[in-house]
Design a protein around this nucleic acid. Structure first.
Length: 979
RNA sequence: GGGCUUGUAGCUCAGUUGGUUAGAGCGCGUCACUGAUAAUGACGAGGUCAAUGGUUCGAAUCCAUUCAGGCCCA
């Protein structure tokens, strides 16, 4: 080994380093994004970049993504991040395709969360304040968070009209909302009805489905006997002899609804039997056959402590109904209630007989309507019983009433059993307290499945592209089963439902009156509803002369006198407000956008939320759908695929992640995972993405580093057809093609994969390695070198564009470095003003040969590794590639043509061609055989050919000699023009 | 409990209409380089395709059930 000539023994080596064209660039390897990004942002501000982009030419016309408004409350979280980044990526991509893509961010500013926050701040002071004063505080609160979130979004590199966003609290927006309401009134799609709605007794308001959260809740469940009046109807003979007393056994988890009981529902298909207690002292019980065993076990432990047994045959539910034996109301003995049939009665739990209180349950209500039962709801807004109930319950809080009712039942021997159960139960999204169903007078949009509105929505749905495709199934399914939409809320922070009542109780809410109020509020803001008198708001006496409000209790053609009107105090559901943005923004606050957005892009939860409220409203009066495409993304989960939440401690804060990684890394993370499903995120994953970012950045740096003396206008040169350059261009073309297709299909994780693997494999492991020798060692102006530099430039230019929608800061930084190069000064200042270039295409005939050469390279690498282990060969430059080619002339000529390229792709010192039966390669340790070139470090036979440079290979000797001459001839021109 | 949906190496993802020994990049391990250097290259080890049971000559792929997640609802 010692006999091998080594580099260190060749002292002149150091002297040659100055004759090399080593990479040079001011572009730093370390990104330091946390510091750098804000300076880039500041630069964009100075350049007024977003406005510049909007003002430029857009040959492909307008393309609008309409922003779904986040709630103006709290700091932004990862959910905001993915949504806004995805939107921004789409918009930047479209912009670079030549579209005009204005982005108007919006905020949902009204609603309970803000009002609750203010209430909490105010405490008891609240009572002394007028709605207007409270609204002022709510407004300030909302605007504060709009401002805060706005800054956070901009920090993420999101472009948009942040100086002129849409806010649901502006008068113009509010006007738009009311105009939509007027349109729906015009088409008789709004009605008023007494109906059970989800009700929060703490916040004293009706709640929408979207305002509920389900959580475990402990309830007292009871088995209660509703004693039958056997003097009426006919005892089913199948039950055996008629007992002296009998009862329907019901099971409920809400004993407090017993006062409102109006019927017992049975399943028409279910079979019922009669249980008799052995002693005969207690009433016989009617239960579903399938539930009998469970009931007997439970009852045995109950207050009656009795054993029951089955007597007689079973009868079906409809037979039970037909028997028409009423029962005595559990709390009002004199009231007789019927047995009715209902499809929803299941045998999964309970007794198969359902206590039905039409004023306190959705299904109960429907049953109540069908059987014309009283929709009775004796509970006040604050959750206390009114005066219509039994005396011992009047004024009682319902949650406290359970025990009183149970005691009452026990005293009257009507409680068969009682237990505490834990089950999932709806809670108010704000105060997190359990909610109830309570029948009240509310405003509804006719949106249940029999409404014409729903048919129109179904039609719209078919004309929308849903991504992923199952979005359509999902929203269609929801639509098919949805109830009418309760749009009234008993709060102050929102858009008022501009209904008036006169002293006779007639209600004024018509398309005309609402349109009139819309104009007024559009001028004076919704606050004016609370401050200004009806005659000022409406302007003149008013007639109910257009669409009647069904069930509003107003006679046709009733004449209202504005001085006799009182303003209603309900406001609209916030979902109605945001759902109106298709008009209030696209045709109202920002009419340049126009109705019918190209894209809505939100989390998949919005199938029930914004997409649906938008569709329902638009279907009420528009002929075209409000969006052409709906794209949904999933939710953030942790490394284990579990939901992120503060309570489990697996949540990642945007501000922390931003501080640690910078916006571009976070954006790259968004692009790296498949957002169609849940998006995994963890510290480890972000670190991984950070590494990917560094690889991409370093690739840019390497390419830039090799272009320091490249002038596009002078040096651009076509590579030789057999060169690795051609292979590289071909790969670039293919990558560009697929990456742009991936953008077009919103497949951003494919964009990421393409770019990242391209950096790792095509550029770094293959191309950069192969062209090192020619870039570093050739004469600066050698065609071979210039051709590779040109390819480096093309790579850089293409990749920086492909990265730009995602890596908004880094791409801009690279772009500005690119502009500094010679001969290409016409580029726009920022990458975000650039357009995608035409695709690079390379004729494929010669390219196909490269699959064969790459196989040889792979085998060569394995052999180099074996040589490394076997004989300690550390450097491929000390090896010779022996390319074995078939003997025919064509193969031999191919081998000699591609030999030098294969040598370079392997990073070998030299190559030689041999004849063999088939294509093969053999790597040979030539440390004993050849000398290493002191300049290129290639170990090859032609070292020392030039006697003037005995330590150099032929190529290097020529180069050094040429450099020597040029420096001595033109001593004022430096060899390398770096810096 | 219902609707929609997901489950392929440690991680992120590919796997066409079922067809050899299930792939890639990263990470990891080992080694090399020190002229991309807080970089770079090479080689290598990793998988019962969530589980079970079917259909089939043949299943990651089709069917059923189960388990574990997610969103929405009850």
């Amino acid at each position: 080994m010692e006999s091998h000539p080594t580099k260190s023994s060749e002292s002149p080596s150091k002297d040659y380093k100055s004759t090399l064209n080593l990479p040079f660039t001011a572009f730093p390897m370390k990104a330091n994004l946390t510091q750098r990004e804000p300076t880039i942002l500041a630069q964009w501000q100075v350049e007024n970049l977003y406005q510049q982009i909007l003002a430029s030419d857009h040959p492909r016309g307008q393309w609008v993504l309409h922003d779904g408004p986040p709630y103006a409350n709290g700091d932004i979280h990862m959910g905001h991040l993915i949504n806004k980044v995805l939107k921004d990526v789409v918009i930047k991509y479209r912009t670079m395709c030549g579209y005009d893509c204005p982005y108007v961010p919006g905020w949902d500013c009204h609603g309970l969360p803000i009002e609750s926050a203010i209430q909490k701040e105010l405490g008891p002071k609240l009572k002394s304040m007028s709605p207007s004063e409270v609204r002022k505080l709510c407004r300030d609160y909302a605007l504060k968070f709009v401002n805060q979130q706005s800054k956070s979004f901009e920090r993420l590199g999101i472009f948009g009209d942040f100086k002129d966003p849409y806010l649901t609290l502006t008068p113009t927006y509010e006007k738009g909302v009311l105009q939509v309401l007027a349109e729906l009134l015009q088409r008789e799609l709004i009605f008023r009805q007494r109906r059970p709605v989800h009700w929060c007794t703490h916040d004293q308001t009706a709640l929408a489905e979207a305002e509920l959260e389900y959580a475990p809740h402990k309830s007292t469940s009871i088995y209660a006997a509703y004693v039958m009046d056997l003097s009426v109807g006919s005892w089913p003979v199948a039950f055996g002899a008629q007992p002296t007393s009998a009862a329907y056994l019901i099971w409920t988890t809400t004993p407090w609804t017993l006062p409102a009981n109006r019927a017992v529902a049975v399943g028409p298909q279910n079979e019922y039997i009669c249980l008799r207690e052995k002693t005969g002292k207690h009433p016989a019980l009617i239960v579903a056959r399938e539930r009998a065993e469970v009931v007997m076990q439970t009852a045995a432990a109950g207050p009656l402590a009795a054993t029951y047994e089955i007597k007689g045959e079973a009868v079906s539910g409809d037979a039970l109904e037909a028997a028409a034996i009423p029962y005595h109301h559990p709390l009002e003995d004199e009231r007789l209630c019927p047995v009715v049939c209902a499809d929803y009665v299941t045998l999964g739990d309970g007794t198969g007989l359902v206590h039905t209180a039409p004023g306190h349950g959705a299904e109960d209500y429907l049953t109540g309507r069908r059987y014309e039962l009283e929709i009775y709801s004796p509970v006040l807004p604050n959750g206390r019983y009114d005066q219509s109930v039994a005396e011992f319950l009047q004024g009682e809080l319902i949650w406290d009433a359970n025990n009183k009712i149970i005691t009452h039942l026990i005293n009257r021997h009507r409680l068969i059993a009682q237990e505490t159960i834990q089950h999932s139960y709806p809670h108010c999204w704000r105060c997190h307290r359990a909610t109830i169903f309570r029948a009240t007078e509310q405003w509804f949009v006719r949106a249940s499945h029999e409404s014409p509105l729903v048919h129109k929505v179904e039609e719209f749905i078919n004309h929308v592209q849903w991504i992923p495709t199952w979005g359509k199934t999902r929203i269609a399914g929801m639509l098919a089963t949805r109830p009418d939409w309760c749009i009234s809320r008993q709060r102050s922070w929102g858009v008022p439902i501009p209904a008036f009542t006169d002293s006779n109780g007639n209600i004024l809410l018509t398309a005309k009156s609402v349109a009139r109020v819309a104009d007024y509020i559009g001028q004076h803001g919704a606050d004016s509803w609370y401050t200004d008198p009806p005659e000022k708001i409406l302007g003149a006496d008013y007639w109910l002369d257009d669409a009647l409000t069904p069930n509003a209790g107003t006679k046709p053609n009733h004449e209202f006198s504005t001085v006799d009107l009182r303003k209603g105090s309900d406001i609209l559901d916030v979902w109605f407000e945001s759902g109106a943005s298709h008009h209030a923004v696209l045709e109202g606050t920002h009419p340049r956008l126009g109705y019918g957005a190209d894209l809505y892009l939100e989390g998949s939860d919005q199938h029930r939320g914004w997409f649906q409220s938008t569709l329902l409203e638009a279907a009420g009066y528009k002929t075209q759908p409000p969006f052409k495409t709906v794209l949904t993304h999933g939710f953030i989960v942790d490394g284990q695929g579990c939901k992120m939440s503060k309570s489990t401690g697996n949540d990642i804060k945007v501000s922390d992640a931003l501080k640690e990684h910078g916006a571009d890394v976070l954006r790259l993370w968004v692009a790296s995972v498949d957002y169609h499903n849940d998006m995994p995120c963890s510290r480890e994953l972000l670190t991984r993405v950070g590494e990917a970012y560094r690889k991409i950045r370093n690739t840019f740096r390497y390419l830039l580093g090799n272009l320091y003396d490249f002038d596009l206008s002078q040096h651009a040169i076509q590579p030789a057809s057999q060169s690795i350059d051609m292979w590289m261009l071909h790969r670039l073309g293919a990558m560009e093609h697929d990456t742009l297709a991936a953008y077009e299909q919103y497949d951003f994780h494919r964009v990421f994969r393409n770019i990242y693997e391209f950096c790792n494999v095509d550029i770094s492991a293959i191309y950069a390695k192969a062209i090192k020798d020619r870039l570093y060692c050739d004469l600066p102006d050698s065609p071979r070198r210039r051709a590779s530099q040109h390819v480096c430039f093309l790579l850089l230019q293409s990749m920086v564009k492909l990265c730009a929608p995602v890596l908004v800061f880094t791409a801009d930084e690279v772009w500005r470095a690119l502009r500094e190069l010679s001969g290409i000064k016409l580029l726009p200042p920022s990458i975000h003003q650039a357009r995608f270039s035409d695709l690079i295409t390379v004729q494929s005939a010669e390219i196909e040969l490269w699959t064969r050469w790459m196989e040889l390279v792979e085998r060569g690498n394995k052999q180099l590794d074996e040589l490394k282990r076997a004989v300690g060969l550390g450097n491929a430059l000390d090896a010779e590639a022996v390319i074995i080619a078939p003997a025919d002339a064509a193969s031999q000529s191919l081998a000699s043509l591609y030999g030098p390229e294969i040598e370079d792709v392997l990073g070998a010192g030299c190559h030689r061609i041999e004849v063999g039966p088939e294509w093969h390669i053999r790597m040979v340790d030539v440390r004993d055989r050849y000398t290493s070139c002191a300049r290129s470090w290639k170990r090859r036979p032609d070292v020392g050919t030039d006697s003037q440079y005995p330590d150099l290979s032929a190529r290097d000797a020529r180069v050094v000699e040429a450099l020597r001459r040029s420096t001595s001839d033109m001593s004022d021109v430096s060899v390398s023009s770096r810096g």
